[in-house]
Design a protein around this nucleic acid. Sequence first.
DNA 1: CCTACCGATCGGTAGG
DNA 2: CCTACCGATCGGTAGG
Lengths: 198, 198
Amino acid sequence: MSGAPQTHHPHDASSAERRREILEISAQLFAERGYRGTSMRHIAEKVGMLPGSLYYHFRSKESLFVDIHDRALDETAARIEAAMSLHTDPWDRLEAACAEMLDIQLNPASLTLPIMNNLHSVPEEVTDALVRKRDEFELIFRRLVDALPLEEDIDRSIYRILLLRQLNTADGWYREGRLTRREIARQILRIFRHARTD
Amino acid sequence: MSGAPQTHHPHDASSAERRREILEISAQLFAERGYRGTSMRHIAEKVGMLPGSLYYHFRSKESLFVDIHDRALDETAARIEAAMSLHTDPWDRLEAACAEMLDIQLNPASLTLPIMNNLHSVPEEVTDALVRKRDEFELIFRRLVDALPLEEDIDRSIYRILLLRQLNTADGWYREGRLTRREIARQILRIFRHARTD
DNA sequence: CCTACCGATCGGTAGG
DNA sequence: CCTACCGATCGGTAGG
């Protein structure tokens, strides 16, 4: 319960802070320019240290990325569960989850912009671990979708995949101004809402 | 009408063939590993020439990518227009277009796998040209969606964007075997079909 | 966390 | 289309 990070070196308070700072800054860079397009030198520059110094905090670029990815998913899962729990109706629960997810994905100031997709820009050695973590995360949506009173000719597996794609890739086209995040969540749900009439 | 490529050097028949071969092979590599993850050396190796020789056929890696992108969109537009034109009902036309689009996006042997999204893996100098070309292509879907008898509280602009996202990113999750491309097109349309009842 | 550095790889070019 | 090469950049490390 101490919450100590699983680092491989002394983790006093200031070191943990610094580590967190590196995570947040590099998360933004990875989100903007992709894994390969983001160099350790660039990260170091924005953090305000020299390139080699990053390796005092992280073993490698890959482990830095995996760390961001895992933390982002954990935090996102927690926020979504909290938002869902305020509702009981299955459609309301789904909408709350989607709105929260969009809010996270579309907020550039967010600590958590994981590059949820386009894993082919990440070296193959780490994709296995990322996919496993992601599958675990998506169980939330599997449960949400399974609880829906959907029309019977809709494949729930495809339905879930399509919905998640929509949420995860929204940052690729969203532009501040025209529509709020919440209005977009509404429109997505508007399209995906196919209630069984019983 | 000669169909001669707009190259900057002699384009006899065999040179045009070679050029085409480079385009097809590099298109696949770009699709698999992203722009930055694909090196000119790797392309050259798969084509069967030495790295420097690629520059006999293309001015730069960027221009090679832009060329692939433009050709892919032109060919895709032509195929979609042909598929659409077999129908008159707006929903049938949309479904035909989507099925064709999916068929292209999900076919690994296809000459045209453009990496339609994730433009942030491409250097900024070329994204303007790519986005312009893409906007032009998407006019097809703008017309298709505008012709639909949609329920009135659905934003056609968002609707079009969401549908295109779905089609363009399908290769990120599709796995051969479980469902055919046509069944997926059906499921997507099943979700996006919200007819006005009038 | 800095200094100083390594080997590998990259896009690209001159000259034939 | 090959030979031979360039400068730049990359992830990472030793030693302090």
